[in-house]
Design a protein around this nucleic acid. Structure first.
Ligand SMILES: [Mn+2]
Ligand SMILES: [Mn+2]
Ligand SMILES: [Zn+2]
Ligand SMILES: [Zn+2]
Lengths: 137, 137
DNA sequence: TTCAACATGCAACAGGGTTGCAAGATATTT
DNA sequence: AAATATCTTGCAACCCTGTTGCATGTTGAA
């Protein structure tokens, strides 16, 4: 609990119970979470708008990053190396079609791609869908 | 115009002006289109719901495929090889941050990735964002 | 031309996401 | 410890995307 305060402070954020709860939810669940997921878990304590704004703030501060999948937008904790200025997000995301969970695969980088002449790449986003180890029968 | 009828017929679809217009829009614009784009272009002639249903039908028949990007969902024409039963979509999508267009890069396949033990991959979706040849100063 | 099957428009709805504003909480200074 | 400036929250209202039910209009084949 004290860790959460430190973590928020480290990003120049005031400590509020909503921010602590959202952050600790991201830390305990390891998978990517949508706003709806968080609202389901914390919605009795906080207004949905507050949860939206908390996500937006965490995004801006480099605490979480966006995860795209076919169902919409989710968010996951950034690795240590992310800050407000610089994000490091060339890792792969895996969505399991059985359990529906989407996870960051931190250790696996997106392989280089040789684009046609004239394309200047900046960001990469690779989503792989399939079956995760937990759901593999 | 006759080509459109043939194309629809080939997918067991009745010819309607909405389907012809949506299909010909996909063919003339080469980039991925959102429902909103189509509504902007055709919305005076057709109800938005009809456009939604046209997109859904085209998806099911393998005429178009989904394209994910950070702003939401778009659609693009499938290559010849796609049908209702089998889709072939291991190509890369490129979104230009200048002009906002998203395009299929048909000739470029997504490179193989060695996932950790236990993951069974089925679909791949790689979005690269950056600057496209047209917008490169 | 007739008719069943299919497609459309309209209305209504659910969900995701944003904004303005007044009231409440936080960190800092005195 | 109290006062204050600054930031955060809740609420209401709103827009956008996408879906569904149903009555009416069209299509293509007999
Ligand atoms: Mn990630
Ligand atoms: Mn494509
Ligand atoms: Zn799973
Ligand atoms: Zn461009």
């Amino acid at each position: 609990m004290e860790q959460l305060r430190e973590m928020l402070k480290g990003h120049q954020l005031r400590t509020t119970t909503c921010r602590e709860d959202v952050l600790s939810t991201f830390i305990s669940k390891k998978n990517a979470l949508s706003h709806g997921d968080l609202e389901g878990m914390l919605g009795e304590n906080y207004d949905r708008v507050t949860i939206y704004r908390t996500l937006k703030t965490f995004l801006e501060k480099g605490i979480i990053h966006k995860v795209l999948d076919d169902e919409g937008l989710r968010y996951a904790l950034c690795s240590q190396s992310c800050s407000e200025e610089k994000h490091q997000h060339d890792h792969i995301h895996f969505k399991c079609n059985e359990c529906g969970e989407t996870n960051c695969i931190e250790n696996l980088h997106i392989p280089a791609v040789k684009l046609p002449e004239g394309y200047i790449p900046e960001n990469f986003n690779l989503l792989i869908q399939g079956t995760c180890p937990k759901c593999k029968s």
